[in-house]
């Protein structure tokens, strides 16, 4: 062996980073792409609501109580067309939905992100520390998961009272366990792999091993759970608001809008509940479409 073996370059002509591969695999499904576009449009509407909504439903000066409960398409007293009708306060439903989406998405995404941070840290700690710490955290998770989420959230909100922050807090409490369990599961698998031993052998500090080597390899299942949990949090918040324990009446979310129209359903004034319901449905379906495809792409066991 006198000459140095220089290993030849692999035959692959184009160099594809894992991220590029991920993008092309994700885009392979038309329906997931449609879900993503829909979701981005909904986010854009929510973010831009103050600029594109025909009316500010929070500004009492713009409301006219005489326009209450008008049918979709009616022209109101001020020469203003209510394309989706009005509620009993005379608020334009279209504007109400745009502003409601803001609250719903904020609560859903905010609680999902905080729950993810809390749950992922605890799950990672459980997997890496093992022993008593692991048992303690995982029994807490079991306890949490044994309660129906809606029941636990109702109890917390009954105790804390209404308010957006309280709803976020309640949703974090009922959701962190999913993240903790997911992260612990994948971290237990990953930490036995040889690249973790190699990092230990290279005398890298534990913190660096956890955050640079272990955590990035546990992310894919976390992203999937996270997407699904955003949709779940939005639905849960809508349920809580519908039951009258969620956001306050001054900051209506989609759930509260549905609840407002509920009493008029049987008197033929369907639009007050119906259109916010459709908006909620479309939002959750679009997130789930994206989440399903993410799960398929990121889960190696589903790959052919």
């Amino acid at each position: 062996m006198s000459t140095t073996t220089i290993a030849a370059a692999p035959a692959a002509p184009k160099v594809e980073t894992p991220f590029q591969r991920f993008v092309s695999e994700f885009a392979a499904s038309r329906i997931a792409l449609f879900g993503l576009v829909l979701f981005l449009a909904i986010v854009a509407i929510a973010v831009l609501a103050p600029f594109i909504a025909p009316q500010n439903p929070y500004d009492l000066a713009q409301l006219d109580i005489m326009d209450g409960r008008l049918e979709p398409g009616t022209v109101g007293a001020g020469g203003f067309t209510y394309w989706l009708g009005t509620d009993d306060q005379g608020r334009d439903m279209l504007s109400g939905i745009m502003y409601g989406l803001r609250i719903s998405l904020m609560v859903g995404a905010g609680s999902a992100i905080i729950a993810c941070l809390v749950g992922a840290s605890l799950g990672m700690l459980a997997a890496y520390a093992g022993g008593r710490t692991d048992s303690l955290i995982m029994r807490l998770v079991d306890l949490q998961l044994s309660f129906p989420a809606i029941l636990a959230a109702l109890m917390i909100l009954a105790f804390l009272g209404k308010g957006i922050l309280n709803v976020v807090f309640a949703l974090v409490i009922v959701e962190w366990a999913y993240y903790a369990r997911t992260v612990r599961g994948s971290a237990l698998v990953e930490r036995r792999r040889e690249y973790i031993e190699a990092a230990q052998c290279l005398a890298l500090p534990t913190r660096r091993i956890i955050f640079r080597h272990l955590l990035p390899n546990c992310l894919p299942p976390l992203i999937v759970v996270g997407t699904m949990q955003v949709a779940r949090a939005i639905a849960l918040e809508a349920t809580l608001s519908f039951l009258g324990l969620g956001v306050p009446i001054t900051e209506p979310s989609l759930g509260l809008l549905i609840a407002n129209g509920y009493e008029y359903m049987l008197s033929g004034k369907y639009w007050i509940s119906f259109y916010p319901g459709i908006a909620l449905l479309v939002t959750i379906v679009s997130i789930n479409l994206v989440g399903d495809q993410l799960r398929d792409v990121l889960n190696p066991r589903l790959k052919r």
Partner: peptide, 8 residues
């Protein structure tokens, strides 16, 4: 050699 290198 497939498990001993961090894939990321």
């Amino acid at each position: 050699p497939y498990a001993s290198l961090n894939p990321r």
